[in-house]
């Protein structure tokens, strides 16, 4: 009988210890998702591959390849404390593998339009005010061949040494139509070659302010940050992109790389799904 009592006491202790751990939880899973649109039109990979979008000085364009990577992703609190989330992530929404790995979405509150997402465990609970990352790699991190998963064959992410080396930051490719004549374009971004042997890093920092992002949440549903790219901005602001001039062979074109850098600073915005605490 004493043994039975001991077992019961043991179970009760385990039960209470389990409860107290949950009460003391100070961190949780955070999902980072990426979504893409052309102004108000949601860009749906695969099904929208034949969609044509209006752009400067041409009839229209369609996108057949979109890949990019961001690095040094951090959350920032109101007092400026930075919480490191991830060293880098490659977003490839038109890649069927990437889609299948996120389909269906793991989070029921994540809209279906997320094309690529990843999970960050153990993110400290706090009131965050902004998200920051580098588009591409900064000069220190953009090391030729250093990341074996970016060397992966299917990416073709290598940036030629003659152009400064390292990796592509963006591959945005497709077709444009002007005066009913169709041509291809390759909007490939990486290091900018100023002159022979002289290069500029060409990455840029993105800082997205969101005043209503509080983490923790009050339920077990994980929270998702949606990073949204407006593809139209690559072709618009501050410099209207003329596909009649800049369409192919742009990796070695300093002017084109500079415009990409400037226009790219306006492409990102952010929203948060899950239970949002409005302070």
């Amino acid at each position: 009988m004493k043994i039975l009592k001991s077992i019961i006491v043991l179970f009760i202790l385990i039960f209470f210890i389990g409860c107290s751990e949950e009460e003391e939880k100070t961190s949780g899973d955070l999902q980072i998702g990426f979504t893409h649109k052309w102004d108000e039109i949601i860009f749906r990979p695969h099904t929208d591959i034949d969609n044509y979008y209006p752009a400067y000085n041409i009839d229209s364009l369609r996108i057949t390849k979109l890949r990019y990577h961001i690095s040094n992703i951090v959350l920032i609190t109101e007092d400026g404390t930075e919480v490191f989330l991830k060293d880098y992530v490659l977003v490839s929404p038109l890649n069927s593998d990437a889609i299948s790995s996120n389909n269906p979405p793991v989070d029921p509150l994540v809209p279906w339009l997320i094309e690529h997402s990843f999970n960050i465990p153990n993110v400290p609970f706090n009131d965050y005010r902004s998200l920051s990352f580098t588009f591409g790699f900064n000069e220190t991190d953009n090391i030729n061949g250093a990341y074996s998963n970016l060397n992966t064959s299917s990416l073709s992410w290598y940036w030629p040494e003659e152009l400064g080396g390292g990796y592509h930051f963006l591959q945005l490719e497709g077709e444009y139509s002007n005066n009913s004549e169709e041509s291809n374009f390759e909007y490939n971004m990486g290091k900018a070659k100023v002159s022979e042997g002289v290069f500029e890093p060409n990455s840029f920092n993105v800082h997205i302010y969101n005043p209503y992002f509080s983490f923790p949440h009050t339920s077990e549903i994980s929270r998702t940050i949606l990073i949204e790219m407006n593809l139209a901005e690559w072709f618009r602001d501050p410099t209207p992109w003329d596909l009649n001039i800049y369409n192919q062979n742009l990796m070695d074109n300093y002017d084109a790389q500079t415009i990409m850098n400037q226009n790219g600073r306006n492409v990102f915005s952010m929203s948060v799904t899950g239970i949002i605490d409005i302070n």
């Binding site: 030729n144 061949g145 060397n151 992966t152 064959s153 299917s154 990416l155 073709s156 290598y158 030629p160």
Partner: peptide, 14 residues
């Protein structure tokens, strides 16, 4: 090289 590899992709295919 955009389809057929480079010095860091010695498979010489994507």
């Amino acid at each position: 090289f955009h389809c057929h590899g480079n010095v860091n992709n010695p498979l010489w295919t994507d």
